[in-house]
Amino acid sequence: MRVWSLLLLATVMITGCGRVPDGQVELIADIATDGQRLIVKNGDAFVWQDAEVVINGEYVYRAELLPRGASALPFSAFITEYGHRVLDSDASLRSVEIRVPDARDGVPGRYKW
């Protein structure tokens, strides 16, 4: 019960934060974590294509397609440009950014927390 409460609290705390630069489409997204995965909810009406999800500015998960609805992305799937992976014990989130090169008519989409 306590774990669920913490997860709920974490979800509430990290939802809907951040600002998107001008000239980009703001993606509709929710994020949460269970301690081992980043749960990303694509709330847009379209599947995100060639999406990048970046944790703490350096750990990147790339997906040709990120479906609508929620996905549970394991931290182990996020790697740095040097090939380092996020360790479970190092899973404290400081920032999350989602980038999509074409969100609407060629305009990039972005979500920042």
Binding site: V47, P67, R68, G69, S71, A72, L73
Partner: peptide, 14 residues
């Protein structure tokens, strides 16, 4: 019990 369209190994159901 899950969204229409493309789903993958990481997709979560409702």
């Amino acid at each position: 019990g899950i969204r229409t369209g493309w789903i993958d190994a990481y997709s979560l159901a409702e």
